[in-house]
């Protein structure tokens, strides 16, 4: 008897927590199907249901809503960012993990320290550097901003490469393979899980970033924006009553691909946080 009570309370408690965690998400989804454009402050569920918000999102672009364009912008930025970042991270990790040269330790420490300084702080200066070479309000500029410093995030991938047996590389060297060949033919194929992690991780950056994009894409022209800024803009004081449920629809659509990638990545997430010290 006591056991059943414990079992039931335990699961009721968990269910309660899940409800707390999911209520805002549920509100997002139901509001996106609301027939009323502003915020419904009286009822949790909308009074009239419709697909108009999704229609407005995709078929009726105006000066505020350019969802398809935003999606394309963000996608392009994300793809290039992810390619460049992944290449940089792999190059730096291989160098730090497998090659031995003078100043390696010093460079590594310097990189780690530099990476710990949050980017938010120097962003004004980044903005000015980009502005003086004319790359603000350009997607090329955004790609550079997101990917140029990515080599600093090498630590996790390096930790992974450290676990690849050194005898593999030695054997290849005896066969006469150059370092470049060892890198391309042996280490990269063996690092596939880490590459997946890096690819997804860097792909997600432009989708979630708000502050840098807001600073860099400041022209006020909706077609320049990424999704994050576009959606933020809809909630400005003068627009919110006309666009709130469209914002919700936009939020739902952008969440679908992002959450799939996130779930794919979550098994690497633990290792990322603990610096690979969990070696099961």
């Amino acid at each position: 008897m006591k056991k059943t009570v414990g079992f039931v309370t335990r699961h009721l408690f968990l269910a309660f927590l899940v409800v707390v965690w999911l209520i805002p998400i549920l509100w997002l989804v139901v509001t996106s199907f609301s027939g009323y454009r502003g915020i419904n402050t009286a009822h949790f569920f909308p009074e009239t249901w419709s697909l108009d918000n999704y229609k407005a999102l995709f078929l009726e672009p105006d000066s505020v809503v350019q969802y398809v364009v935003w999606f394309r912008n963000t996608l392009v930025i994300a793809i290039f960012t992810c390619i460049i970042s992944t290449i940089f991270v792999l190059m730096v990790s291989y160098t730090m993990s497998c090659l031995r040269f003078k100043g390696r330790k010093g460079l590594m420490s310097f990189g780690i320290i530099l990476n710990m300084f949050p980017g938010v702080l120097s962003m004004i200066a980044v903005y000015f550097v980009m502005k003086s070479i004319g790359l603000t309000n350009s997607h090329l500029g955004m790609i550079i901003v997101y990917s140029a410093g990515s080599g600093l995030g090498y630590l996790i991938t390096k930790g992974f490469m450290d676990t690849i047996s050194v005898s593999l590389r030695e054997a290849a060297r005896l066969e006469g393979a150059s370092e470049a060949k060892i890198f391309l033919r042996i280490i990269i194929p063996l690092s596939k899980p880490m590459i997946v992690y890096t690819v997804i991780n860097s792909f997600l950056v432009p989708w979630g970033d708000f502050v840098l994009a807001k600073l860099m894409l400041n022209s006020g022209i909706a077609t320049d924006w990424t999704i994050a800024i576009g959606l933020f803009n809809m909630l400005g004081k003068s627009l919110i009553n006309k666009y709130f449920s469209i914002f919700c629809a936009g939020g739902v659509i952008v969440s679908i691909p992002i959450s799939i990638l996130f779930v794919l990545m979550q098994k690497f997430y633990v290792e990322g946080v603990t610096g690979g010290s969990v070696k099961g």
Partner: peptide
């Protein structure tokens, strides 16, 4: 090989982290 691999990432870091 380390020189070849590190050149581009280093330029990126100098431009986007150190100079700012």
């Amino acid at each position: 090989f380390h020189i070849t691999l590190l050149t581009l990432p280093c330029i990126g870091v100098v431009l986007m982290n150190i100079i700012p």
